[in-house]
Simulated assay, not measured.
Amino acid sequence: MEKKVQQYYRLKQKQKEIEKELADLRQDILSYCSEQGATEAEIGSYKVKLVTQNRKEYDDLKLYETLSDPEVWRMLSKSDPAKVASLTKLNVISEDKIMHTYSLKTVTLLQVDKK
């Protein structure tokens, strides 16, 4: 069992290193594309594509005050954007009613595919 714990620890350390390296590479690629003014590029045998998305970031207090039904709030327990989106799609919550409870955050996704 000690070997499994040791291997787990070693892999977690490696995972942290890989995640940091990925974040650094991602930033370098995003900077390059920004300098080029491009959202798509072919670099060597790879195709790079930047996809911009808007994500809602809810204000828990505003959302709680808006959702007067405690049963609905219990379904959320805290403002999880995926849960709020699901309840909105199911017409449990009206989009118009909660419009003031979130701000939009623009995020850029990086896709790299081999040609």
Rank of each mutant, 00 (worst) to 15 (best):
M1P: 09
K3W: 15
K4D: 04
Y8T: 04
Y8C: 07
L11Q: 07
L11A: 02
K12T: 14
Q13G: 14
E17R: 11
I18A: 03
K20N: 09
D24A: 11
L25D: 02
Q27N: 11
I29C: 05
I29N: 02
I29G: 06
L30W: 00
S31Q: 10
S34M: 12
E35L: 04
G37P: 10
A38G: 03
A38S: 12
E40P: 09
E42G: 06
I43S: 03
S45P: 00
Y46R: 15
L50P: 03
L50C: 03
T52Y: 04
T52I: 11
Q53V: 15
N54G: 13
N54E: 11
R55P: 05
K56Y: 00
E57D: 05
E57A: 15
Y58G: 03
Y58N: 05
D59G: 00
D59H: 02
D60Y: 05
L61V: 09
L61A: 14
L63I: 06
L63R: 01
Y64C: 01
T66Y: 01
T66W: 00
L67S: 05
E71R: 07
M75P: 00
M75R: 11
L76I: 11
L76C: 01
S77T: 12
A82Q: 13
A85F: 04
A85S: 07
A85V: 02
S86G: 11
S86K: 14
L87I: 03
L87S: 08
T88Q: 12
K89M: 04
N91W: 06
V92R: 05
I93M: 06
D96L: 14
K97W: 10
K97M: 14
I98T: 00
I98C: 01
M99A: 15
H100C: 08
H100F: 11
T101V: 01
T101A: 04
T101W: 00
S103G: 14
T106S: 06
L109Y: 09
V112I: 04
V112L: 04
D113K: 15
K114A: 07
K114F: 09
